[in-house]
């Protein structure tokens, strides 16, 4: 579904991503994990077309992508951003935020689509005409997910979708994303610094460090605690050492 070969991105003299390769099969959930500044969000930006200065090959659904993307691309691929507070226009009501993609693509019956999309993310009609400042962080992220879903895309890019949320709300949003993928057969690329989130959501993952992929593996290997690379083992230890009980409790909610 998505094939990335020797993707490099540089901002001025800083090389943020170096020769990154990976591929994601249709219906698969692929995780990109790494610490801050490892270039994982930049990879998503390049795939989505939000970052222009990249080199290498990006192909989505078999079609090689250039600097500019066409409408069909946008209908196929959508994204959920990290910060739910900055991702929604502060002067637009939920109805407009969620309906805007449908209006841009000239779809019919925008109102009914908005209602359906909001229903799928668990927001009732009472939320339809609220402004973002009237919503909690978790509700905002649900609105962002509804906005991404209204075009009925096949691929969803998730850029740390829960890292700005409370732990209890994180689990709700992750379960929502997992359910949507199961129902719709969506393909996910999930970026996170949290190995527990990746282990919960993904089938395969790549570990990034300093702009490179240091290891790619299946999630069973991660669960078994047997990564080959020392860096991955350290990352794993760090994620467990942070709060073991919470991390295990989180996994048991699946």
């Amino acid at each position: 579904m998505i094939r990335v070969e020797s993707l490099s991105v540089s901002f001025g003299r800083v090389q943020a991503v170096r020769e990154v390769p990976f591929h994601v099969a249709p219906g698969e959930a692929f995780g990109l994990v790494g610490e801050s500044g490892s270039g994982k969000s930049t990879v998503l930006g390049a795939i989505a077309g939000l970052i222009q200065d990249w080199s290498g090959t990006i192909s989505v659904a078999g079609q090689p992508q250039g600097r500019r993307r066409d409408k069909a691309f946008h209908k196929r691929l959508q994204m959920v951003f990290q910060d739910p507070y900055g991702a929604l226009h502060p002067r637009h009501v939920v109805d407009r935020i969620v309906g805007e993609p449908a209006a841009i693509h000239g779809l019919d019956e925008v109102g009914a689509r908005v209602e359906k999309a909001l229903g799928e993310v668990g927001l009732g009609p009472a939320f339809r005409y609220r402004y973002p400042h009237q919503l909690s962080g978790g509700q905002r992220q649900r609105v962002a997910i509804a906005r991404a879903l209204i075009l009925e895309p096949e691929i969803l890019l998730l850029d740390e979708p829960t890292s700005a949320l409370d732990v209890s709300v994180q689990a709700e949003v992750l379960n929502l994303l997992a359910r949507l993928r199961a129902e719709r057969g969506l393909t996910y690329i999930l970026v996170s610094h949290d190995l527990a989130v990746i282990a919960h959501m993904c089938d395969r993952l790549a570990v990034m460090r300093d702009g490179r992929v240091v290891e790619e593996m299946g999630v069973e290997e991660l669960r078994a605690g047997a990564p080959r690379e020392a860096y991955t083992r350290r990352l794993l230890a760090a994620s467990r050492g942070y709060d073991r009980a919470a991390a295990e409790g989180f996994e048991s909610t699946t």
Partner: peptide, 8 residues
Amino acid sequence: QAARLQGA
């Protein structure tokens, strides 16, 4: 960014 990604 979201608006750009929607193809606006």
